[in-house]
């Protein structure tokens, strides 16, 4: 049983479908993502079919359906970063990790998220890995950063 989701749902007794989005937000806050189990529980609680919940959740960019990786890479695609070539940065990272934005690598180490603006336009183009900012990147530099995290995992493990 998904206790995190159940805890969220206890805060919404007798709720209807109008509470779906706040519940999804809280579940994601607690679990890091929206799991199938969570959707099943939410659906039963609200009396809303799972397909409908998935439809609502996929409408918004904020919801993810796979757990975040150990290293969660946020790639800024805001205006300033875009002008400074963030499309290339994203592509290089995706290629290096063999996953696309919104996905998590099979080993569970890396996930990529595209965000609209991190609020660090002075550092454009910028990415943020687990809260650590890397600015004024080039494609090569971005790849190097990814490699450094991969290496850290390989040497230290866990």
């Amino acid at each position: 049983m998904n206790t995190m989701t159940e805890q969220v749902l206890t805060r919404y007794p007798g709720a209807g479908r109008d509470k779906l989005i706040p519940i999804l937000q809280e579940v994601q806050e607690a679990d890091g993502y929206i799991s199938k189990e969570a959707v099943a529980l939410i659906g039963r609680h609200l009396g809303v079919p799972a397909s409908k919940i998935y439809g609502v959740a996929t409408f918004y960019n904020q919801f993810r359906f796979t757990p975040k990786g150990k290293y969660h890479i946020m790639v800024c695609r805001g205006t300033a970063c875009h002008v400074k070539g963030s499309a290339d940065i994203l592509e290089r990272i995706e290629r290096a990790l063999k996953i696309t934005a919104g996905e998590t690598s099979r080993d569970g180490l890396f996930s990529i998220e595209v965000v609209a603006c991190i609020g660090a336009c002075g550092l454009a183009p910028v990415i943020c890995v687990n809260g650590e900012y890397h600015g004024k990147l080039t494609g090569d530099a971005a790849e190097k950063i990814v490699k450094s995290y991969q290496q850290r995992e390989a040497t230290h493990g866990n």
Binding site: A50, K52, Y54
Partner: peptide
Amino acid sequence: SALDFSGRGSKCKISTAFDQSLNLST
């Protein structure tokens, strides 16, 4: 309700919950 719209804009499509295949849906 095995099917619903998912995604948005040009990525909008008809899908089951979690885009699973029909045999795993309701």
